[in-house]
Amino acid sequence: MAAGGDHGSPDSYRSPLASRYASPEMCFVFSDRYKFRTWRQLWLWLAEAEQTLGLPITDEQIQEMKSNLENIDFKMAAEEEKRLRHDVMAHVHTFGHCCPKAAGIIHLGATSCYVGDNTDLIILRNALDLLLPKLARVISRLADFAKERASLPTLGFTHFQPAQLTTVGKRCCLWIQDLCMDLQNLKRVRDDLRFRGVKGTTGTQASFLQLFEGDDHKVEQLDKMVTEKAGFKRAFIITGQTYTRKVDIEVLSVLASLGASVHKICTDIRLLANLKEMEEPFEKQQIGSSAMPYKRNPMRSERCCSLARHLMTLVMDPLQTASVQWFERTLDDSANRRICLAEAFLTADTILNTLQNISEGLVVYPKVIERRIRQELPFMATENIIMAMVKAGGSRQDCHEKIRVLSQQAASVVKQEGGDNDLIERIQVDAYFSPIHSQLDHLLDPSSFTGRASQQVQRFLEEEVYPLLKPYESVMKVKAELCL
């Protein structure tokens, strides 16, 4: 049975990233139509530049190519590739079939990587351009969430054990800070992308030097003109047959890092959902379990974690691919890159769409948070109580021993009897502590235990987050809708 299948058929496997999760716009960027249309555009740009620099290419040939950029006979191309065992030459023939007058000058002087690699770089750039505003929107939604809850005390956790208090907004800023680093890295790697350009079979530009009869300047002009037509500021000066596969490492490393950030955020949300302090959106008709109707599973956060793990592992592909590119190139890269580049971007696209949807509907339960604080705060307040007693004339050592005994009794009630923490009640009825009984409410005010959390939130948002989001103001209103 021949390899390949009808990918629109229910009898043929289709990647869930495309069929179930990723956005239509990201799927289109990695589609065959987008790819092969870009090949034709690159052939047109090459012909236009070659004509401008004096090669015998007519206006009629150029116009014929322009008129057929979208006229792609995919069936013919597939048949040609089956016959020739070469995808680029299959599309040269297919393009030439609908451009008979231009057929002889299509791909003039070029090698397969002229269309293959340059198209990949265009796709990487455009895919990054799709991700950047999506990530900015996630940051914006979380920034709104953090600002609104900047002063809401909550129990902090280290080692997932109760620690000092923080605020809900401050905790959210930990998430935002990681995503801001990801946004900066995505922008950097996007701006650092260079075009492969017009380089020939081993990167020496020998074929173009021959076409222009040894004119170095025209060869350099050709490279520059096509690079500018493709919208790049610069091209690699040095290439082998391909652009260095280190570029793929750079791009997928940034995406993998984004995956790590999203995994951490969504894990926190899942843990908070278990504590009943916070939940992701839950639709009115949504079913959490087929057997347990009360369940409210954090399905979206779980999906993000599941896909983020996949995204983090994909960076190993370009690392290994770059390491086995012998001399000017081997074909070890080809099949692998067809999979890992598309999957990385479709996965990143999915987790950003999902995280935006989550961040637009996060639900906080202040009463649950308050109750958990009441359970733990008495123990945390013991040092403040000791200091207040010393100020009232008591002995630190005597007070410490009193607190120690009462704390152990209260802990026994919590752990052995399943009761509430009654340390404060014990202190309130103990005559030894009568000098500070009137101060206990103040000493137990949760806001006095959150330090500068709310001020940190305000400063972080104003100095770091809002300036970073400013270039994306025009796209901030787009909502994230999930079908599944």
Rank of each mutant, 00 (worst) to 15 (best):
R396C: 04
F236C: 06
K66E: 08
L377T: 00
W43V: 00
T94L: 14
K218F: 08
L46G: 02
H310K: 11
D223V: 02
E280F: 02
T154V: 08
L444P: 00
Q41Y: 12
L131S: 12
W326M: 14
K276R: 07
L468W: 10
E473N: 15
T242I: 08
L484N: 15
A480E: 15
A381T: 14
N384L: 11
V115W: 00
K367C: 07
L346T: 13
F145P: 03
V405A: 14
A348Y: 04
M181I: 14
N336H: 02
I238P: 05
E70S: 15
D59W: 08
G104Q: 13
D87I: 00
H400M: 05
S67E: 13
I269C: 05
F95Q: 06
Y21T: 00
Q161L: 01
K391T: 13
G361F: 07
M225K: 14
D430P: 05
V363R: 06
P162S: 08
F28W: 06
S438Y: 11
E343S: 10
Q241S: 02
E383V: 03
G54E: 14
I287C: 11
R137T: 15
N336W: 02
E228Q: 09
S323I: 02
L84W: 13
R329G: 02
R338W: 01
F36L: 12
E425R: 13
G361E: 15
K246N: 03
I176A: 08
I176P: 01
L469S: 07
L53R: 00
H310L: 09
N357F: 08
K264N: 01
G288I: 05
E64Y: 11
S140P: 05
H86E: 00
D87N: 10
K224M: 09
L183V: 13
R296W: 07
M181H: 10
V475R: 15
L255E: 01
V405L: 14
A47F: 03
G197I: 01
Y294A: 01
P318V: 10
I249L: 10
L108T: 10
H107T: 02
L461Y: 06
G203T: 03
F30P: 00
T158R: 00
G109A: 08
G240K: 02
R149L: 08
R234G: 11
E277H: 04
Q205E: 02
M387T: 12
T382Q: 07
T202L: 06
P318Q: 04
S395Y: 06
S407F: 04
L362D: 03
H263V: 06
V457C: 08
G156S: 13
A344S: 09
L272Q: 06
L53C: 15
L346H: 15
S395Q: 13
S434L: 10
F95C: 05
Q356S: 09
Q456L: 13
R300V: 15
Q409Y: 08
V405I: 15
E48C: 06
E25T: 12
G8Q: 15
L222I: 06
Y21V: 01
F145R: 06
R188V: 06
K402A: 07
N336R: 01
T347M: 08
V457A: 08
E425G: 10
P10Y: 15
D317G: 11
G156R: 01
G259Y: 02
L406S: 06
L193Y: 07
S289D: 01
V324N: 10
T158P: 00
L469V: 14
L135Y: 08
P100R: 12
P366R: 09
P435W: 05
S301V: 13
K75N: 10
L341V: 12
T330F: 01
K134H: 12
L311S: 02
I72R: 05
Q397K: 06
E277Q: 05
D117V: 01
Q325W: 04
L121A: 11
K134E: 10
E417V: 06
V189S: 13
T382H: 02
A291I: 03
K391V: 07
V324A: 14
Q409L: 08
F160T: 02
I436Q: 02
R426N: 08
Y13H: 08
T347R: 04
L132T: 12
Y365G: 03
I424V: 15
E417W: 10
A206Q: 12
R40V: 04
E81D: 15
G54S: 12
Q325R: 02
V457H: 02
E401K: 14
R141M: 13
D191F: 06
S23I: 07
